[in-house]
Design a protein around this nucleic acid. Structure first.
Lengths: 215, 215
DNA sequence: AACGATACGGAGAGATTTTATCCGCTTCAC
DNA sequence: GTGAAGCGGATAAAATCTCTCCGTATCGTT
């Protein structure tokens, strides 16, 4: 692949990430084009339709996410610090986008499910380790973690996005939220939210639930 | 005002709140109409243009918010519990919408500024009280509180919204986040984010800063 | 119960936005 | 230097959004 083609691809993927995060998975591709600063033809040449773009984006993000999780685990000895490091990296990677876009709008095939499972496994390892070390509430599940991260690291709506031009606010709030996940629950607990529930909510099975919900 | 007119007004306002939260302040009014289950004419009859709708919505929300804050303060003796109660009430009221929509898209007049100031004062009282009681980190400002609430109580994007059909997940995550704001900062602190910064970021002065930023 | 007034929703015209393609010019790799 | 691959702007076709007209239904009152 030629160098300029690769560059365009990257710019489109990055732009798509931001745009989908801000405007949802149905955002006009036109907006992606404008943000990326490329011509429409360039996008449509590389990604024949929305699905192709979404799939490429998700694959890319999941791979980077998995790597970030593994690296955090290997770099930081302390489980809680490892989790924290990962969460911040995930925010930088726009983890939210992967989740947001992945869970609907996406025709899931085996490859993608495998990639996703890899990411989930890697993050779960971090979560479990922190919990085993007693540094994280036991009643917090993958779903909670993921959803909280998505929520906190999502760009602020509209003009407010300017508040966090450099992303430091996200990291600040991520730390505050993370402190709330630390051990010693004093608030009312509740069953942890698993990642499977999140997947199920997306409406598209991916890995069809045993029961198999109709419609 | 006739009973059915009042009913329509309420449905439109509620729908607008959800829609603006989900799709931003420029969301098509058509979407509001669909969500409200009324005819387009009904919306345009009541609210001649977008601004009228936004203004009515914001006024309505700020009033309810102020009331919720005052009531929380009066009902709960413990400052931290009062704050917590308020935050949950604010989530139910879709406080985020007020903020999201208020801060741009809104031609601010004196009435509105007064209403807003009233709300800010009421919430600030809660915040200060909790901090004075040592139940809340001192390095958390109104801006942090508001933004965290907006982030956590905003509806999840797309199909994920179904995860929280009854809103219980928001309350769960609000509690988790709130725990992180409790006393004993162990993470890296930083200057608290004030509400004025949030206002300033919205681009429209409202109450022009002393310095007065051009443009 | 009946009446006048008010409000409602659907159909749809016109404007705007979005999608997707063609083609002449530029950039890259060899 | 050359051929192939890639790029962006212009633009046609489709979809969406804004806003109004008008016949029908609902409300409050007598």
């Amino acid at each position: 692949m030629r160098a300029d083609a690769e560059r365009s691809r990257r710019r489109i993927l990055d732009a798509a990430c931001e745009v989908f995060l801000e405007r949802g998975p149905d955002a006009p591709l036109d907006a992606v084009v404008r943000r990326a600063g490329v011509g429409p033809a360039t996008l449509y040449r590389r990604f024949p339709d929305r699905e192709a773009l979404v799939r490429a984006l998700v694959t890319d993000l999941l791979a980077r996410l998995t790597e970030a999780a593994d690296q955090a685990r290997l770099t930081e000895a302390d489980p809680h610090r490892a989790l924290r490091r990962f969460v911040h990296a995930a925010a930088d990677l726009r983890m939210g986008a992967a989740i947001v876009v992945l869970l609907e709008r996406l025709v899931v095939d085996e490859d993608l499910v495998a990639v996703r499972r890899g990411a989930v496994t890697a993050v779960e390892a971090l979560l479990r380790a922190a919990q085993d070390a007693g540094r994280l509430r036991a009643d917090v599940g993958m779903g909670d973690l993921v959803l909280l991260c998505v929520r906190v690291s999502r760009p602020l709506p509209g003009a407010l996005a300017a508040l966090d031009a450099d992303g430091s606010l996200v990291h600040r709030h991520l730390d505050l939220a993370l402190a709330g996940l630390a051990a010693e629950p004093d608030g009312p607990a509740g069953p942890p939210l698993g990642f499977d529930e999140v997947i199920a909510a997306a409406g598209r099975p991916g890995e069809p639930a045993p029961g198999g919900v109709a419609e």
